[in-house]
């Protein structure tokens, strides 16, 4: 019973963190859907602060940086990403964006 109480306390402490990250994720998805990348960046940064190992969301942050033309910021993030943990969809999107950038140069 003591263990259950300790874990309940631990969860209660971590509840707001997960809740904030969940809200930020929903908000980021909505902002990206309407091409409001500045807001999406702000939301993904919140997720990045709370869950720094979430590779998928780091990649989404990089995608948003590319879309607003902050290529250096995107490159800095992409250097640190473990691409094995990324979904095929995000890899495809990133590759398409990088290809587009190369063509524009």
């Amino acid at each position: 019973m003591i263990i259950v109480c300790v874990l309940l306390l631990y969860s209660t402490f971590n509840f707001p963190i997960a809740f904030k990250a969940g809200l930020a994720k929903r908000s980021a998805q909505k902002a990206e859907a309407v091409a409001n990348y500045a807001e999406a960046i702000s939301d993904y940064q919140k997720i990045f602060t709370l869950f720094p190992d979430s590779e998928e969301h780091k990649a989404r942050l990089a995608i948003c940086y590319i879309k607003v033309g902050e290529i250096q910021q995107a490159a800095d993030i992409l250097k640190k990403i473990n691409d094995k943990k990324l979904s095929k969809e995000v890899i495809r999107e990133l590759n398409a964006l990088i290809q587009e950038l190369k063509q524009n140069q």
């Binding site: 874990l7 309940l8 631990y10 969860s11 209660t12 971590n14 509840f15 963190i17 997960a18 809740f19 990250a21 969940g22 994720k25 997720i47 869950f51 190992d53 979430s54 590779e55 998928e56 969301h57 943990k85």
Partner: peptide, 24 residues
């Protein structure tokens, strides 16, 4: 719900779970 919630999002949404999350 309260006990599992902080472990569900890292595990299923953010892909950053640890052993404590599975216990929760």
């Amino acid at each position: 719900a309260i006990i599992a919630f902080p472990a569900i999002l890292p595990t299923f949404t953010f892909g950053t779970s640890d052993p404590v999350d599975f216990i929760l």
